[in-house]
Design a binder for these strands. Structure first.
Length: 388
RNA sequence: GGAGGGGUGGCAGAGCGGUCAAAUGCAACGGACUGUAAAUCCGUCGACUUAGGUCUACGAAAGUUCAAAUCUUUCCCCCUCCA
């Protein structure tokens, strides 16, 4: 046993995160990712906890939804409370009372979303903090250092999330810089058992750029490969076009993570195309803006038609909202801007996502993914359950 | 009884001769949200409309004026203070 483990480590010296695929159906995979803080069953959805909290949720509640891994953010935590403090407090897991795996984004998304507040050079990015205007410098090396201090299980290499639309030249230039940064990130990453680093493919909507990016990343060797720069305004059709080839040029035996995606229908489509991991603010942000996810499509619970609806949000959902409260009540809470409304709806939305992932995983295991997807899309298209 | 202040769109509240179908906020109605600068943002919000306009509107009525939510008179309400 010991011997076997030693051999594994020796043979796989650089790789410190184990990933196994237990079943394949078409391009879809059912896998397990082993980290120091536990196992992640894939396809997996990671709720977003940017500032060391999944907004409006207690960590124990997040765990109760079935989520096995969270996303945190380098940029936000570096500003507040600062990486040194998190380290001093025993790492992000302990600090925020979440003992399951954590993946941290590198700040690459903020390179895109904070245009105007940042200056980009080959060396790195200088941000003017959106909090107080103070200047912060983030390079691949700096981002790795911070993510080490946060003690995240999965470190993301620093990239530039290429905005859309981009010309071929812009996309190529941006992608190539991200690849240089990927190498620098990998070099600065400290391998430890149960921890890993993911590279991020870019290339916008251009097939040969996506391929070139994948080749470069494979050469560097990562524990997992992310697909970045999608769901940034290109629309689902174009995104699926890219996903028809992008995951396939990444290594087959490593997890594939589609960053920032997405709506439930995006996720189902992406799983069919071979993606294993997702993160998105959609369930949490929507919880705060009255959008509720259901098997019959998203609904806006603030709409007047829910005012006197005594039914649960979703029949058969086991979240606290659906088990104990009516649509009328959550409608009322949201209209009154009550904190509880935000809490309950966030909980429901995350639970909806996690149930969807459970369904996808089971469908892959049972070789019924296509039926599952067909059923899913049929119901989504059908729209909200008709009023009684 | 005396002195003063006021009545504006569902509510609060600006406007005090033309650029006013009337600021702004709230409410209402709808939409958006994809590696979180988000408990946020964006529309609509008198009625018709061939979308250019047309009509009805700032307590009521009557006036002044080319022109009135804005000025005058009377009336009806409301509020504050003094008897």
């Amino acid at each position: 046993m010991h011997h076997l483990k030693k051999e594994l480590v020796k043979a796989d010296k650089k790789m410190s995160l184990k990933f196994e695929i237990i079943k394949k159906t078409g391009n879809a995979r059912r896998g397990r990712l082993y980290t120091k803080h536990g196992v992640v069953n894939t396809p997996a959805f990671m709720p977003v906890g940017t500032c060391g909290t999944v907004k409006a949720m207690m960590p124990e509640s997040v765990a109760a939804t079935g989520a096995e891994i969270l996303l945190g953010n380098t940029y936000h935590l570096m500003l507040r409370p600062g990486a040194d403090l998190v380290e001093k407090m025993g790492g992000l897991h302990k600090f925020m009372n979440w003992d399951k795996p954590i993946l941290t984004d590198s700040g690459g998304f903020q390179v895109m979303s904070l245009t105007g507040l940042r200056k980009l050079t080959e060396d790195g990015v200088t941000f003017s903090s959106h909090v107080d205007g103070k200047k912060y410098f983030l390079s691949p090396e700096e981002s790795m250092k911070i993510q080490h201090k946060l003690d995240s299980n999965i470190t993301m290499s620093l990239d530039e999330c290429t905005p859309f639309p981009a010309t071929y030249e812009q996309a190529a230039q941006s992608m190539r810089m991200s690849m240089r940064w990927a190498q620098r990130s990998r070099d600065a990453f400290r391998d430890r058992d149960g921890y890993g680093i993911f590279g991020i493919q870019q290339g916008s909507v251009f097939k040969d750029l996506r391929e070139e990016s994948a080749e470069k990343l494979k050469k560097i060797e990562f524990d997992g490969y992310a697909i970045g720069g999608l769901a940034v305004g290109e629309g689902q059709e174009k995104m699926f076009e890219v996903l028809d080839y992008a995951p396939q040029c990444l290594p087959d035996d490593k997890p594939r993570y589609l960053m920032g995606v997405g709506r439930p229908d995006d996720i189902v489509g992406a799983v069919l195309r071979g993606v294993d991991m997702f993160d998105c603010v959609m369930p949490t942000r929507s919880g705060r803006t009255a959008q509720a996810f259901t098997s019959y499509g998203p609904i806006n619970i603030r709409n007047a038609r829910h005012r006197e609806d005594y039914r649960p949000l979703e029949e058969g959902c086991d979240c606290p909202l659906c088990t104990h409260y009516s649509r009328a009540y959550i409608h009322h809470l949201q209209k009154c801007n009550e904190i509880l409304g935000v809490m309950l709806l966030t909980w429901h939305n995350i639970r909806y996502y996690e149930r969807l992932m459970q369904g996808l995983r089971q469908a892959i295991e049972e070789d019924k993914l296509q039926e599952f997807a067909n059923d899913f899309y049929r119901k989504q298209a059908q729209g909200d359950i008709k009023e009684l």
